[in-house]
Nucleic acid binder design. Structure first.
Lengths: 200, 200
DNA sequence: TGACGCCGTTAACAAAAGATAATTTAGCCG
DNA sequence: CGGCTAAATTATCTTTTGTTAACGGCGTCA
């Protein structure tokens, strides 16, 4: 146990030079959370401003479209952060659902509590910036892929960069994240088998 | 003159309760920049870590694809921030070009300088968070539109939310931002004229 | 004014994706 | 092991997009 805390302490030290011994005030406010497969972490309409570091497992963020279909915004896995961006950034009830695709272990903190701690411990600010920048970088990277690549190219890139993830997650969620239907993803895979076998 | 500074000072006060009189150290390090139509603000391969508040005009962030075509990642206009995310977040030479589509007025600061100021003036931290969150919110909103909407729906939404922008910017850049070709955008517009005239 | 270039539109065809439904595969639970 | 259910594949048809090229409008500039 304590793996998440260890990892985050390393992060803090690397980023801000804060020694593990000095992080007590921060980690005193974190809560370990376990989720079963298919359990919701944040539900639609929820207002809690939770932020979590994923120690283990995969979490899917998705929304329900007007026609009732689900659309996966992104997947997050161990080493990444998840946050209810509607509630934290926009102070709106969450339009998104965050659900575990596997048994998940999180280290959770409430964003409001984090802000309180930052008032008295500004030396932790780099953590907040780090997590914001990391999420921004990931979003921009996905955005970039949508304007520069075809669905097939996005899938090929995902395969080459996150092969493990693609194999852990049902195809229909991968398809949805790529902005296409499962049927279409299936055709892309067929095309890839018959034609060019290259993975990049 | 001073409009950008006034706007930012209001922002700072609203966000952090910092009085305009106390923002001298911050604004002493900002530089007003003017760009002509079609002038590049940041070029491909550049390493400068510039961050700017747009007082007036529209800036386009785009990249050159392998096949030589351009792909527009986003457009930014007055009241928004632009930043070279490759250099600031990833510390890599910029793969993107930031170019003025109209005469542009910016208030610029170097991110490294901003970080220095933040070390001695942690009361400005909310500014950094604000700009990061704003960029993150915008990116996530665009990402959401890609996984939940068709190109036509994205265009209709853009029209209803940013009609002024669509009319200020050549269609081909709008198309590229929507992830489609100019030909396809033209067909979408034709369809919208003949069929449903509703804008949402 | 006339030539040039850029941009938006249109056309024609190929390629890909959406929608729907049927079929096969695979995982899960008793 | 058998049976149930969800997921993935396949098929068919429609719609949309990509590609390429041609055409017209419009502004710039010599």
């Amino acid at each position: 146990m304590g793996t998440s805390i260890d990892t985050l302490q390393e992060l803090l030290f690397d980023l801000a030079g804060v020694l593990p011994a000095d992080t007590a005030p921060l980690f005193a406010m974190t809560t370990p959370v376990s989720l079963e497969t298919n359990e919701a972490y944040i539900r639609e309409g929820e207002n809690s401003r939770r932020l979590a570091f994923i120690e283990k497992g995969v979490v899917r963020a998705y929304t329900i479209k007007e026609n009732g279909d689900e659309a996966t915004l992104f997947l997050r896995w161990e080493g990444q952060f998840i946050a209810s961006h509607d509630t934290i950034i926009n102070r709106q009830p969450s339009r998104f659902i965050y659900r575990a695709l596997e048994p998940v272990k999180l280290l959770q903190i409430d964003y409001d509590v984090l802000e309180e701690i930052l008032k008295t411990h500004p030396e932790y600010e780099p953590i907040r910036n780090f997590f914001l920048m990391k999420m921004l970088a990931e979003s921009l990277k996905m955005l970039e892929s949508f304007v520069t690549q075809s669905p097939e190219e996005r899938y090929r890139e995902l395969l080459s960069e996150r092969f493990d993830l693609v194999n852990r997650v049902p195809d229909k969620y991968i398809a949805s994240m790529l902005g296409i239907t499962p049927v279409s993803l299936s055709r892309i895979r067929k095309r890839m088998h018959t034609k060019g076998k290259t993975v990049t």
